[in-house]
Design a protein around this nucleic acid. Structure first.
Lengths: 257, 257
DNA sequence: CGACATGTTGAAGCGGTTCAAGTAGGGTGG
DNA sequence: CCACCCTACTTGAACCGCTTCAACATGTCG
């Protein structure tokens, strides 16, 4: 066991360059000494199986997690037991920062497939970022980015017709794969149609119908989980389509600005 | 002018205890020395008139702002010129942190009435929070809280029927007023029906109809901007009502957890 | 192989938007 | 101070996008 731990530590060290912590450290030039410190506070966790929880809504908040491999969904549950998916997360994502306020997890994080994560005790991370200016900045930056992403998501939920929602979902996912060095045009959906529908505020049937329709129109090829995008420009165009209800979306107030 | 500035500084000092910076500083026990440092980096801004912008989408990011008096809306604008309101902000709110990533404002902030704000240059704030642990923690906490609020907003946009959306809007606003020491049951809406509709992803006409309906049912009294809540429990109950489309909102995956 | 979950497709129903018309404030200029 | 205008808001009626319901197909796992 102790031998394993040594191996793990070495592996983490080498992996830091591949995961979000690399982007989190290196851009602001952490030296070897700082990188060492960071490595020391990271805990290895055994792989989490599909369907297992990384944490549940209501759990006390102790750590944030970076995804090393696999994907997961975060979602809230309301009084009636209904779920609302907040986001899907891919390798390199840092999750859990939304629980700082209140020190209780307000989302559940569930693995969509077998995943591998690094656990980072938050109090240690916070102390460290007190000493390393670049780290503090990067934490703030990550949360800022998360806010921006959610603004987009909110806009889609509030206005967009169903085709634009799904097109938007696909192009964003594609872009995220591209940014991680995977193919932007061919990938597997780790989430179910149900999950996609939920996150986009739609019915499952509508997702099914639209995917068929997109395929019919030559925008993409889809077979179960596998998706191949054939006409990205058209898909992007679709995702920008605004709803017909554009009535109250222009500011009519007589601004002095 | 220089005399004015002196007066202003004194005023800000005394006001820090009333605005969000007080909650931001005191809970973690800033001593007079630290409070002094904080006061020094805060810039006074002349009042912003109704309809004026605090900043616009696309502006370079330099400062965050705390609202001392009045209210404003933040919104994004898409390619087609359509607006989507992200949030309404009240006195004590700190806004602008979502622009850290990219260092460009991704929202516009527009005054709903004449407002008074404190401008805090972000680089100064960041340096200071590097020295004051409690300040760093509180910045993270504020962003975490913002994420949580947006999760709620997303859930409403994705699932809730229109009555629940409006009820939720009203109870949340009420709660925010209460937390600021104002009446929770009687207040003025600084935003137009159009703005409410936009932020909730609805048509203006629906807002109008629902307000009439709520009044008819004895839930509240409304006359133009003035609102008096008569049956808060019923309103809260309404806000928790889930949509009829609760089909794909329960997780059917056979989790091993 | 059987059972259950997931996904697909068709048809009906409805919630909420859109369209249309009218009312009421609030500000401006004569 | 009043008449005017423009914007914000309200209310009614028709329409439609999407959901819901239902039935079936296809995997998947014990």
């Amino acid at each position: 066991m102790s031998r394993n731990r040594i191996v793990d530590l070495a592996e983490i060290r080498s992996n830091c360059k591949k995961c979000s912590l690399f982007q989190l450290c290196m851009p602001m030039g952490l030296d070897d000494n700082d990188l060492e410190k960071l490595d020391k506070i990271i805990k290895r966790r055994r792989p989490v199986e599909k369907g297992d929880y990384l944490y549940r809504m209501g759990d006390p908040f102790h750590s944030v997690y970076t995804i090393r491999a696999g994907s997961l969904k975060t979602y809230t549950t309301n009084q009636n037991g209904q779920e609302q998916i907040i986001a899907f997360h891919l390798p390199g994502d840092l999750i859990g920062l939304d629980a700082i306020q209140g020190e209780i997890h307000t989302c559940s994080a569930k693995a969509l497939e077998t995943i591998s994560v690094c656990e980072i005790p938050f109090d240690r991370l916070e102390s460290l970022s007190q000493k390393i200016p670049g780290l503090q900045h990067h934490l703030l930056k990550l949360m800022s980015e998360e806010l921006q992403l959610e603004h987009c998501h909110m806009t889609i939920l509030a206005r967009a017709p169903v085709e634009a929602r799904l097109a938007s979902f696909l192009t964003q996912l594609s872009e995220r794969f591209r940014a991680r060095g995977y193919s932007a045009t061919e990938f597997n959906l780790s989430m179910s149609r149900n999950d996609i529908a939920n996150s986009l505020g739609m019915a499952v049937e509508t997702i099914s119908r639209l995917l068929s329709q997109f395929q019919e129109h030559g925008l993409l090829q889809v077979e179960r989980k596998h998706v191949q995008i054939l006409d990205m420009p058209a898909l992007v165009e679709l995702s920008n389509r605004c709803g017909p209800n554009a009535q109250n979306t222009r500011d009519s107030s007589h601004g002095t600005a």
